[in-house]
Write a protein that binds this DNA or RNA. Sequence first.
DNA 1: TCACACTAGATGACCCATCATCTATATCCC
DNA 2: GGGATATAGATGATGGGTCATCTAGTGTGA
Lengths: 180, 180
Amino acid sequence: MNTTRWLDEGEQRAWRSYLQMHGQLLARLNRQLQTDSSLSLADYEVLVRLTETPDARLRPFELQRGLQWEQSRLSHQLTRMQHRGLLNREGCTDDGRGAFIVLTDAGRRAIEAAAPSHVDAVRRLFFDGLTRDQITMLGRLSTQVLDRLGASTEVPTRGESNIRRSGFAAHQRLSTAREN
Amino acid sequence: MNTTRWLDEGEQRAWRSYLQMHGQLLARLNRQLQTDSSLSLADYEVLVRLTETPDARLRPFELQRGLQWEQSRLSHQLTRMQHRGLLNREGCTDDGRGAFIVLTDAGRRAIEAAAPSHVDAVRRLFFDGLTRDQITMLGRLSTQVLDRLGASTEVPTRGESNIRRSGFAAHQRLSTAREN
DNA sequence: TCACACTAGATGACCCATCATCTATATCCC
DNA sequence: GGGATATAGATGATGGGTCATCTAGTGTGA
């Protein structure tokens, strides 16, 4: 059927400026983080998840659930971070297949050093330009879309039951960059 | 000064679900485009800009202004697309340094074939879950943030005067994927 | 207890994005 | 005209992301 419902004027504009905005914003944040702290946004997110855990130790699949990344992406990312000394892999005695990812001291120092300027940049480039209401709306909008994404045909990632959403929701409540 | 203003609960939640949402959404759209049409989102955007022009010909720097990409990213992208036969480079007589990017027939066929299912996916995964108001708000929010980004210290891309915003605004008015 | 399915994770190939750098032309201005 | 400078664009190295596939351990049920 050739009955495509094209985007109308308003949708068009919203969609394009949204994509544009996101691209610019993330480019900036990435650059800031990279030049000021030698971390990528991906590094940062992984480190945050680790510091949010009591003993800075997580199984890769737990990290994966929180980050919602593809398994192999995470694995590669962890390898790179390990090479840079930000974390280590340790064997898991309970489950012979498994591993533990543990934050190193260098890793902790790295995120503690990076967090202030990063949060500052997020605030400066993003939040400071928005009203309280806009922020609330954006949050609502995002979770709505996320729910929708979860609903329509599952992600093609193995090891993805529907614990996913609740696991994610739990992470939502945690703080961004620090534990102390 | 150690006076970092950390994100509060609400900001935290909004920020995280926003990042999460965007990541998931774009992953989906990319996958859809890739498997159904063998195009990446980047290919798609370039092709769209080209089809929006009367004779499907643009100078790289014009494309760059519209897309707001880094110059070298664009250059590499064009090279790849050229190798796949989606476009060609032609010399520019007016300006000896310059080039023209021209859409090939294959390129046009590719985007015309890809557009319906892509727009459909955008609608299904994104717009259909939102109200009119939410869409409007998102558009407004995005342009607000974009303005802010333009204001605070310019992007480190050469060849970026402040024609940028107006050039962008002009593009905003054009339609997404088709010209007929 | 053994086959079979499933889960945890790693890896190589390939594409994409960024950075630094390079070439060539254009422009400005003395 | 001719040097300084700016602009248009390409390119190689490198890190990041995705896909397909692989290994190995776990769980289950006949």
